[in-house]
Measured scan of single mutants.
Amino acid sequence: MKVIFLKDVKGMGKKGEIKNVADGYANNFLFKQGLAIEATPANLKALE
C-alpha cells in the first residue's frame, strides 16, 4: 500500500515521502499512530 509519511519514522521514511509499505503495517501502526496517510489521488494532490 502506498502511504504518505506525516512524520519521520525511523527506518521507514521521512515526512512528506511516498513509499510502499505492507498493508498490515500501514493499517495497524502508521495510520493508528497518525504517522502516515494513504496515498490516494486526493491526498497526493493536497501534498503538492
Rank of each mutant, 00 (worst) to 15 (best):
30 L>N: 00
13 G>T: 00
6 L>R: 03
6 L>E: 01
27 N>D: 10
9 V>Y: 04
23 D>H: 15
7 K>I: 09
15 K>H: 05
26 A>H: 05
32 K>M: 14
40 T>R: 04
41 P>S: 11
40 T>P: 04
18 I>P: 00
7 K>A: 13
38 E>L: 06
45 K>A: 15
39 A>Q: 01
4 I>H: 01
11 G>H: 08
37 I>F: 04
8 D>H: 06
44 L>I: 15
7 K>T: 12
44 L>Q: 08
15 K>R: 12
14 K>Q: 12
40 T>G: 04
42 A>G: 10
12 M>D: 03
32 K>G: 12
3 V>S: 00
27 N>Y: 15
16 G>H: 08
29 F>G: 04
24 G>L: 10
33 Q>Y: 15
1 M>A: 04
20 N>V: 14
12 M>S: 08
35 L>F: 10
33 Q>H: 14
42 A>E: 15
36 A>V: 08
10 K>I: 12
45 K>Q: 11
23 D>F: 14
39 A>F: 07
6 L>C: 10
5 F>K: 00
25 Y>R: 06
31 F>R: 04
42 A>P: 04
24 G>Y: 15
22 A>N: 14
4 I>C: 05
35 L>H: 03
37 I>E: 03
12 M>W: 12
38 E>D: 04
2 K>P: 07
27 N>F: 15
35 L>T: 04
35 L>C: 05
12 M>N: 05
9 V>S: 01
48 E>V: 13
10 K>W: 14
41 P>G: 09
28 N>K: 10
31 F>N: 04
18 I>D: 03
32 K>S: 12
31 F>G: 05
47 L>T: 07
44 L>S: 05
23 D>N: 13
5 F>W: 02
18 I>K: 02
11 G>Q: 05
47 L>Q: 08
17 E>A: 05
13 G>F: 08
19 K>A: 14
47 L>R: 07
37 I>Y: 04
36 A>T: 02
35 L>D: 04
2 K>D: 09
40 T>S: 09
2 K>G: 04
25 Y>M: 13
17 E>Y: 03
18 I>N: 02
6 L>M: 08
14 K>C: 13
47 L>W: 15
44 L>K: 06
16 G>D: 05
6 L>K: 02
24 G>I: 14
36 A>I: 06
33 Q>M: 15
9 V>I: 08
39 A>N: 02
30 L>W: 04
42 A>H: 09
28 N>Q: 10
22 A>V: 09
44 L>F: 02
34 G>N: 09
24 G>K: 12
40 T>K: 03
40 T>F: 04
31 F>S: 03
40 T>H: 04
12 M>H: 14
38 E>I: 06
45 K>D: 11
32 K>T: 13
13 G>D: 00
15 K>C: 11
33 Q>W: 15
31 F>C: 05
11 G>K: 05
17 E>K: 02
48 E>H: 13
33 Q>L: 14
42 A>Q: 14
25 Y>A: 09
37 I>A: 05
13 G>Q: 01
16 G>V: 00
44 L>V: 13
2 K>V: 07
24 G>R: 11
3 V>Q: 00
17 E>S: 06
38 E>S: 06
18 I>C: 07
18 I>A: 04
23 D>A: 15
32 K>V: 09
29 F>E: 12
8 D>C: 07
8 D>P: 05
45 K>L: 12
21 V>K: 01
25 Y>S: 08
28 N>V: 06
7 K>Q: 13
27 N>C: 14
24 G>T: 14
33 Q>T: 12
22 A>S: 14
29 F>V: 14
30 L>M: 03
22 A>I: 08
14 K>M: 09
11 G>E: 06
14 K>R: 11
40 T>M: 03
48 E>N: 10
12 M>P: 00
41 P>T: 10
35 L>E: 03
13 G>C: 06
20 N>K: 12
24 G>N: 15
37 I>W: 05
48 E>P: 06
2 K>Y: 13
30 L>K: 00
45 K>H: 10
41 P>W: 08
5 F>P: 00
7 K>G: 09
28 N>L: 09
17 E>L: 03
41 P>F: 09
5 F>T: 00
25 Y>I: 15
46 A>W: 15
23 D>T: 15
45 K>T: 10
46 A>Y: 11
6 L>F: 02
20 N>I: 15
29 F>D: 09
25 Y>C: 12
42 A>N: 14
33 Q>P: 02
2 K>H: 10
43 N>I: 08
21 V>P: 01
30 L>S: 00
37 I>T: 06
13 G>N: 01
43 N>P: 01
26 A>G: 05
4 I>S: 01
22 A>Y: 11
16 G>Y: 08
17 E>V: 04
14 K>I: 10
36 A>K: 00
34 G>Q: 09
9 V>K: 03
45 K>V: 13
38 E>N: 03
26 A>S: 04
4 I>P: 00
21 V>I: 10
1 M>H: 05
28 N>F: 07
47 L>M: 11
43 N>L: 06
5 F>C: 02
37 I>L: 10
41 P>C: 11
12 M>C: 14
42 A>T: 08
45 K>M: 13
20 N>Y: 15
23 D>L: 15
20 N>G: 08
8 D>T: 08
41 P>Y: 09
41 P>M: 10
11 G>R: 05
48 E>I: 12
21 V>G: 01
38 E>Q: 09
40 T>I: 05
12 M>V: 14
19 K>Q: 08
34 G>P: 00
10 K>M: 14
48 E>F: 09
39 A>Y: 11
24 G>S: 12
48 E>Q: 13
38 E>G: 04
33 Q>N: 14
18 I>W: 03
22 A>G: 12
19 K>R: 12
42 A>D: 15
21 V>R: 00
35 L>I: 08
16 G>F: 09
7 K>E: 14
31 F>H: 03
20 N>H: 15
2 K>F: 12
12 M>F: 13
23 D>W: 15
11 G>Y: 07
11 G>M: 06
11 G>P: 08
37 I>H: 04
9 V>E: 01
41 P>N: 10
30 L>P: 02
35 L>M: 06
19 K>M: 13
24 G>P: 11
11 G>I: 02
5 F>D: 00
20 N>S: 14
